[in-house]
């Protein structure tokens, strides 16, 4: 067992974990943060994408011990005081999800793109999402949603706090 300290969606956790425990299983099975799903075992599908210290990561390809001391943001941590993130709104308005299983990872990956490239082209969006597979939408509405959300401001606690 190895002692780790991780902040997830703003809450600090300390736990003893087996070194082999995958970050995604730590989130799901230990912390009960089941908003981040598992879709494959080869790092291909991207459903488990989270933000790890400011950069996207596939949480099935990171050991929980590697996240020791880190800050993790999951799809469950995006809304602030109930206000959805612009990507969450855009996915809803553009019908960019059907079954929704890929959606948490899609949104986190798209968020990573917009942080680095606030005004992407449709082609940029497609390439930035190449590691996130969707089986329902054919991607077209996902691309539309990300383009819609580009330029919108992320909510922050300061802005929406009364």
């Amino acid at each position: 067992m190895t002692r780790i300290s991780v902040t997830v969606d703003g809450t600090k956790y300390e736990d003893d974990v087996e070194p082999r425990l995958l970050l995604v299983h730590y989130l799901r099975d230990r912390l009960g943060l089941t908003g981040t799903p598992v879709g494959c075992d080869t790092s291909n599908c991207g459903a488990c994408t989270v933000d790890l210290d400011g950069a996207t990561a596939k949480s099935c390809s990171v050991l929980a011990v590697q996240a020791d001391g880190s800050e993790v943001t999951t799809v469950q941590g995006l809304a602030v005081n109930g206000e959805w993130h612009p990507l969450q709104k855009a996915f809803h308005e553009r019908h960019a999800l059907q079954c929704g299983y890929c959606t948490p990872g899609m949104i986190m990956a798209a968020r990573g793109l917009l942080r680095e490239n606030p005004a992407p082209s449709a082609d940029d969006v497609r390439h930035a999402l190449e590691g996130n597979l969707c089986r329902c939408t054919g991607y077209q509405n996902i691309v539309r949603a990300v383009l819609d959300a580009a330029g919108a401001t992320e909510p922050s606690a300061q802005e929406v706090a009364p």
């Binding site: 790092s43 991207g46 994408t49 790890l52 950069a55 996207t56 990561a57 596939k58 390809s61 990171v62 990956a109 990573g112 793109l113 930035a128 190449e130 590691g131 996130n132």
Partner: peptide, 9 residues
Amino acid sequence: VADPAIRHR
């Protein structure tokens, strides 16, 4: 190489 998330790590 791979995809953006993998390139981050």
